[in-house]
């Protein structure tokens, strides 16, 4: 029965004690892994063994384990979240690997995402970009009628596609330039598409683009690696839309 087959894997994992530690790769063996383990469950097994041996477990970020929280900042064999299309690390299963495989596990590497410990990075720079304009200012008060503001269905759909972003930072990790254009483009587009977002559209794109630079992200050179890395499959058309919004803002 395939259910009883187990795999033994060699993991080459980035270990770094703190933000200032230079860090280095350590090699571990993952034993008794079945094809049903998720990648994070595989790491849990390795950590159980490490703890039993009195060693420091591998520190990694995780939260929902259902593919929507965006915490698992791991580059696996050179691809963010392991490179399977539209997949976070928790949704990557060990059936994608073979017995005897060697797997490299590294944290997101970007100046804007300092490594805190092992595979955990600080993604607060994405919050800074959102704080620069990723919102709409509106007065509170009575709940408006649902159909008071009409939004055509295709526009609502497109805005929702952009809103799928979970802020995981895989686009930055996959980008050879560490640019945050897909993340920022998705938020700028989501709000620019909707009537509620239009009044602040010009100021928003200016402020968010400035924030990207201040946070230390790189510049986009249209490689489109971000779209391939995105666990939600966010399209680079939203970067084009942000560029369009930016051009418009220059004349507003």
């Amino acid at each position: 029965m395939s259910d009883h087959k187990t795999m033994t894997l060699t993991l080459i994992v980035w270990r770094q004690k703190s933000a200032n530690d230079p860090g280095k790769f350590e090699t571990y063996t993952a034993k008794n892994i079945t094809e049903h383990h998720s990648f994070l469950e595989m790491l849990d097994c390795v950590n159980e063994d490490l703890i039993a041996a009195g060693k420091e477990p591998i520190v990694f970020d995780h939260d929902c384990r259902e593919g929507i929280c965006g915490m698992c900042s791991q580059v696996i064999n050179g691809a963010p979240h392991g490179g399977q299309e539209r997949t976070t690390v928790c949704q990557l299963h060990m059936r994608k690997f073979k017995d005897g495989d060697t797997i490299y596990i590294e944290p997101w590497r970007a100046k804007a995402f300092p490594i805190l410990k092992d595979l955990v990075v600080d993604r607060a720079a994405l919050d800074t970009i959102i704080q620069a304009g990723g919102y709409t200012s509106c007065h509170t008060g009575g709940v408006p009628d649902g159909n008071a503001v009409l939004i055509p269905k295709p526009i609502a759909e497109e805005a929702t596609d952009a809103a799928e972003c979970i802020g995981c930072g895989a686009c930055v990790a996959g980008c050879p330039n560490s640019a945050a254009m897909l993340f920022t483009g998705a938020k700028v587009s989501q709000l620019a598409l909707l009537p509620q977002g239009r009044p602040e559209a010009a100021a928003r794109v200016t402020n968010m683009v400035n924030a990207m630079k201040e946070c230390g992200f790189g510049n986009c050179t249209n490689h489109y690696e971000c779209q391939a890395s995105c666990p939600k499959g966010i399209d680079v058309k939203f970067i084009a839309r942000m560029n369009r919004e930016y051009l418009k803002s220059l004349f507003s």
């Binding site: 080459i12 590294e106 590497r109 100046k111 330039n177 560490s178 510049n219 489109y224 690696e225 391939a228």
Partner: peptide, 27 residues
Amino acid sequence: QLTLENNAATPQAYAVKNLSKATLSSN
């Protein structure tokens, strides 16, 4: 300028890098 800034934004390279969309041209 853009190339220098992009290099600065990525101070540490990945040990393994598996590009799927970037090309000989774009790189």
